[in-house]
Amino acid sequence: MMKDFLKGLWSQHPIFRQLLGMCPTLAVTTSAENGIYMGLAVIFVLVFSSLVVALIKKFIPHQVRIAVYTVIIATFVTIVHIFLKAQYPDVSMALGPYVPLIIVNCIILGRCEAFASKHSVSTTLYDALGMGVGFTWGLFILGSIREFFGSGTVLGVAVLGSAYNPLVVMILPAGAFLVLGFLVAIMNGLERWKI
């Protein structure tokens, strides 16, 4: 059980090891806060879609399984999207089109296909939670780095003072690619030295 949970946090990390779910990873991490919101939305969708798939896996015909998974995911994403719009309009504005785009986040479809369709409901729950939390800390790290250099703040609080001239490139799209590139390289290095 614990192993299913922990693998998503490090050894099979969805962002750094599997390179899945790249569009939200790069797009919403202009600040650490946005990263966490996106992570929470993905955890919700991932956990519920995986559970539903694990529950009804026996009734899904093999040929149309991908379409069925996609419809299940799209339903939960619609729930999240409407909920955010009604309760947290600011968050909904900040994440923009990337909330509906959770539908095509390959982490979720990937977990449904590779794990939930082959395992029991309880194992699936641990796997989905692990992957979701792993994804969230990845977004948080990426968002923190970009926010720190790009606006000189940590979680919205200014820490570098007015003398700091922000590196605007960090919050531009180019900065997202560069920071993630270096983070992936660092993770490769850690793996190489067996950490």
């Binding site: 180019a174 560069l178 590139g181 490769n188 290095g189």
Partner: peptide
Amino acid sequence: VPGVFKGAALTLIIAGLLSLIFM
């Protein structure tokens, strides 16, 4: 290329540079 940058890491960094160029 330095070993740790091989593959996805390098592709992402090149994409970053391309993004700067397209600006």
